[in-house]
């Protein structure tokens, strides 16, 4: 019998110290039946990539409030490409100005959820875009 679960790494890159939002998302994904690996604050891109490998996740959810997203996100995407891990879907949330969104999406971030997004929308997005056997 197969019992697959969607596995999501919720990661907080950068230096900001608030993870209320990340925890709310983690909780919502858990309630939607997903296994959420939460790694805590201030993660380097290297740590995020390595954790994603070891945990064999389907999705990486990045939460960032510090404004460093145009610096950190490209690094993470590049590392995923270098290690041929583009099968992992990357989504992001936090304080991200609208003018940055299209560029981040072009880069390979699949979707960006800004403050006030209904968690159900995030759950639905993941379930529609991730196929697990």
């Amino acid at each position: 019998m197969k019992k697959s679960r969607i596995r999501v790494l919720v990661a907080k890159p950068g230096l900001d110290g608030h993870d209320r939002g990340a925890k709310v998302i983690a909780r919502a994904l858990r309630d939607a039946g997903m296994e959420v690996i939460y790694t805590g604050l201030r993660q380097t891109p290297e740590q995020i990539i390595e954790a994603a490998i070891q945990e064999d996740v389907n999705v990486i959810g990045l939460s960032i409030l510090s404004g460093a997203h145009m610096y950190i996100f490209p690094k993470i995407i590049k590392m995923l490409e270098e290690r041929k891990m583009t099968d992992i879907m990357v989504i992001a949330g936090g304080i991200i100005p609208i003018e940055d969104i299209s560029e981040l999406k072009k880069m390979g971030i699949k979707e960006i959820f800004t403050p006030g997004t209904d968690t159900k929308k995030i759950v639905k997005f993941i379930k529609t875009n991730v196929a697990v056997a």
């Binding site: 858990r30 296994e35 939460y38 380097t44 740590q47 390595e50 954790a51 945990e55």
Partner: peptide, 15 residues
């Protein structure tokens, strides 16, 4: 579902 949070205490080991 589950929230798996043990890595929070093991951050430096990740790399």
């Amino acid at each position: 579902g589950a929230i798996l949070g043990d890595r929070i205490r093991m951050q430096d080991l990740t790399t």
